[in-house]
Design a protein around this nucleic acid. Structure first.
Length: 504
RNA sequence: GGGCCAGUAGCUCAGUUGGCAGAGCACCGGACUUUUAAUCCGGGUGUCGGAGGUUCGAUUCCUCCCUGGCUCACCA
């Protein structure tokens, strides 16, 4: 018996007995299909089509509907039931007059949760509820487990995440979050497709896990007898396609990072990366602002967001600050990357930021910025000019030693997008990799590994390009006002129930 | 991993200053031909997260463990 519900022996046993009885009487409790394909009516369509039907009247139209039985109100020789389909609910009215004694009795043998098909005339009840006055019905799939309670519904977070199908079945809000996420992704694809981008699929199993500084998952290929890594980013493969001569490519799919799990982190998360040749990061600022406002408006109908009661508007121009400028403002001193490491380390320690050995000025500035500034940037803001030290794949900013042509977009204190002018110089890229390799050798597991094959591609020549990344789960959180990433990931990662895998 | 909080029926939750375990819904039986949390009558279906300990007696007190949430650290 499992630890968290659905395991009531008695309730399940009662349903199993009904199932056996049904079978013994020659019934088929798990049908192969119902009705003619495409001819089933959906509840939502019925509500709009028969919106004008008067209470107590009949439409003359006969329809077939199918879905899950969610509630039953029985009144002797008449019974009302709520049927839930993919678009909502429709009431069924079953009367002994219409079904006959046997048919009516058979309906009483169904359980809440059973999936049934029913046909009959569309009517509106005296109390004004649109209904199907059922003349025939049949069980399509028997449900053996009791559903969560109808009034309070399903609130337990663990069950909502673990058994998302129950959450989606019971909670309209959960469906809306899922559907908003789906719409968001669809609109992003539409936006990019409309602008001549092609969507590609690059390897998720990689020999060198590059494109981001993060610890990877390791897996093993038996036939090759070698370890492979689940990708932490598609970046280096997408840029190979720029080398190949494609000038607008994107990938919208999963990345995997072997790091902590929290209300803002799932081990696999969805990321958009897009690259356009012959543009730089300045172009991408307007491009991303356009993309984010366009898709949010397409999904929500406006560009006004609400995060935890706080109203945030995407309309109007977005603020632009430099990382160092913003840090200086919030730290109360004019910070500069030309400061010696000890001086920055001293500032860091004053703000409880630990500085590992090997960290230089760029690392410390970025760390201080993240700690002191990031969460305070509520209105949409471009944060410009990231230190080269933490941006091993970004082009250096001319006339600003130590910085790259990189920015992030912050909304409601969250990093929503990251973009930069790509580093196309293979000699510079090799030096950057080697410096990262030095950090790696010194014990920094997140430092970027050297990717010789990528360097080889760069040596053939990559056009100037701008690249961007958008955390889709974070954007979905922003769009739906969810504070927990597990609300916007359909099946989020949870520890296995009982502390161990049930895989056999 | 650290800190704080929580775990009681299928679901949402009460409760026991240590003495046979409670409600609503769900479920089972009965009445009822227009309800929508239907109503009415009857029925409690449970390893009180787990294992030890204290005690005449532990769901309650103590210890450890498990699970989850929030939070901090790492990150997107």
């Amino acid at each position: 018996m499992d630890a968290h519900g659905g395991g009531s022996g008695e309730l399940i046993q009662a349903r199993r007995l009904k199932l056996e009885k049904y079978l013994a009487e020659g019934g088929e409790p798990y049908m192969s299909s119902y009705g003619k394909p495409g001819e089933l009516a959906l509840s939502g369509d019925l509500h709009s089509e028969f919106g004008g039907l008067e209470p107590g009247s009949s439409s003359g139209s006969t329809v077939a509907v199918a879905g899950r039985l969610m509630a039953v109100r029985s009144h002797g020789k008449a019974t009302f039931a709520d049927l839930q389909d993919s678009r909502g609910r429709i009431q069924l009215l079953l009367r002994e007059d219409g079904l006959g004694k046997d048919g009516y009795k058979a309906f009483g043998g169904l359980d809440i949760g059973d999936i049934i098909g029913a046909s009959g005339e569309v009517i509106r009840s005296r109390r004004g509820e649109l209904s199907v006055a059922v003349d025939s019905f049949r069980l399509l799939s028997k449900s053996l487990r009791p559903l969560p309670e109808k009034w309070h519904g399903l609130k337990d977070h663990e069950i909502r995440f673990r058994r998302r199908y129950l959450d989606l079945m019971m909670n309209l809000e959960a469906r809306q979050v899922l559907e908003n996420r789906v719409a968001l992704i669809r609109e992003i694809r539409r936006f990019l497709d409309d602008r001549g981008f092609i969507e590609v699929e690059t390897p998720m199993l990689q020999q060198v896990p590059g494109g981001a500084t993060a610890r990877p998952f390791v897996t093993h290929h038996n036939a090759l007898g070698m370890d492979l890594y689940l990708r932490v980013a598609p970046e280096l493969y997408l840029k190979r396609l720029l080398v190949a001569g494609y000038d607008r490519v994107y990938e919208l799919n999963r990345n995997f990072r072997n790091e902590g799990i929290s209300s803002r982190h799932n081990p696999e998360f969805t990321m958009l990366e897009a690259y356009q040749a012959f543009v730089d990061y300045r172009y991408l600022m307007e491009f991303l602002r356009d993309m984010i406002t366009t898709v949010v408006e397409a999904v929500r109908g406006d560009t006004e967001l609400e995060v935890d009661g706080e109203k945030i508007s995407l309309a109007g121009p977005w603020k632009k600050v430099t990382m160092v400028g913003a840090l200086s403002e919030y730290a109360g001193v004019e910070v500069d990357i030309s400061w010696e490491t000890p001086r920055l380390a001293e500032l860091a320690s004053r703000h409880d930021v630990e500085v590992p050995g090997g960290a230089g000025p760029g690392w410390i500035i970025a760390e201080l910025y993240e700690k002191l500034v990031e969460h305070k940037l509520r209105e949409p803001t471009f944060v410009l000019d990231y230190p080269e030290e933490i941006s091993p794949l970004a082009r250096r900013k001319p006339d600003s030693p130590g910085f790259t042509e990189r920015f992030e977009i912050l909304i409601a204190g969250q990093e929503i997008a990251n973009a930069f002018s790509e580093l196309t110089d293979p000699v510079d890229q090799r030096e950057r990799f080697e410096r990262q390799a030095g950090k790696r050798a010194a014990g920094d597991e997140e430092a970027h590994p050297v990717d010789e094959e990528y360097l080889r591609a760069l040596e053939y020549g990559m056009p100037p390009a701008g690249g961007l990344g958008v955390g889709i789960d974070r954007l979905a959180m922003l769009l739906t006002g969810c504070k927990n990433i597990r609300d916007v990931i359909i099946f989020p990662h949870l520890r296995p129930e009982g502390g161990r895998s049930q895989w056999i």
